[in-house]
Write a protein that binds this DNA or RNA. Sequence first.
DNA 1: CATGAATATGAATTCATATTCATATGAAAC
DNA 2: GTTTCATATGAATATGAATTCATATTCATG
Lengths: 203, 203
Amino acid sequence: MPKDTFFNLPKEKQERIIEAAIDEFATHPYHLARVTVIAEQAGIAVGSFYQYFADKKDLFKYLMGLLVEKKLSYINSDMVKNQDKYDFFQLLREVYLSGIRFAKDNPRLLPIGLMLANDKALYREIFGEYEDQSAAFFQHLLEYGQAQGAIDPAIDPKITGKMLTGMLYSLTDFIVEDGKFDPDDMAIIDRMLYFIENGLKKR
Amino acid sequence: MPKDTFFNLPKEKQERIIEAAIDEFATHPYHLARVTVIAEQAGIAVGSFYQYFADKKDLFKYLMGLLVEKKLSYINSDMVKNQDKYDFFQLLREVYLSGIRFAKDNPRLLPIGLMLANDKALYREIFGEYEDQSAAFFQHLLEYGQAQGAIDPAIDPKITGKMLTGMLYSLTDFIVEDGKFDPDDMAIIDRMLYFIENGLKKR
DNA sequence: CATGAATATGAATTCATATTCATATGAAAC
DNA sequence: GTTTCATATGAATATGAATTCATATTCATG
């Protein structure tokens, strides 16, 4: 958690620091990201940085918190609250689309999450022993779908949850990388969802 | 490329160095992997390391070459040579299964590839401007499948190629991580392939 | 054996960064 | 206007590698 001094700062200054941090962490793996550069970019002295944060990790953790919060804000909250009103494929679709909306609006944030996902030691330091959250989420969704009778009962929820996560990562990555892809044209994405749906559906 | 001195070394010593390097790179992201530790582990002096390799990257590139070579060796070579004898789903299945066999036999190598895949700057240094090889491979496979009439023509080969790659990564990762999973029992994997097949098939 | 070229060695150097700290600044309180 | 406290600063320090280099050792060859 950042120190009080950080939260006492004018919002504008806080934001400058956060923006600078995003820039640096988005373009460098955690261990290569430089506090010096963040401070300079934000227009503060290096010493000040340490008035605000205990250390580099402190800032990074805080940043990840913001990121998770922001990402969650993209999921239609009604769907979260009243999951049972929706069928499995509606929910799956919403998760994918929210992930894609998030990626579209926040392309700079994606690499940060990706890099973290691949540095397991770091991941553990930040999130503790939690398993991969999104894989677990998909897993539950699949179990729910099987209970509903919508999903082929022969599907293994755990491994399939992992795969749905991997696919979502690939998809968002693709959308961000391939700049020419127009995310407002959801046709291709719908086709991918259709592909998944066909694969999972009970027949 | 390592220097001649390296290749002049007795095979046994070469192997000790390679093994030590695998250990270090498998457990640390590239930039945190320490030459010192590799040398110590291999039982050579740090100075010797620089008699064999220009620098850390030189060793890493070489290692990646070995890794790619090894991975390719797992693909049934007849299937590569006579691709047209096989239908799309047979080929896809072979690619997945070979990936899984490789993962099963070489669990230590996987994290190295994964880490590289996620450090795009490094990836480019190692492989140049090549696109992601496996995504491209899947893409061609899909185009072939569409030409054959086996694959839904509405599927976008590029994005789907990316997703198949992501899924294969997730799958191998799962298999290695979750130690209790018995890879000889291919039932679950078959079900995943069945899932993919159902999703892609032209109806 | 003697010789020199190739190889081995690890201490010394360099370099890039995180972090600390003594000091300066400024604003509120009296 | 002085005191006090919080905040700001960037030069100094600490750290942790990568890489170099002067020296020692090995080994093939005459």
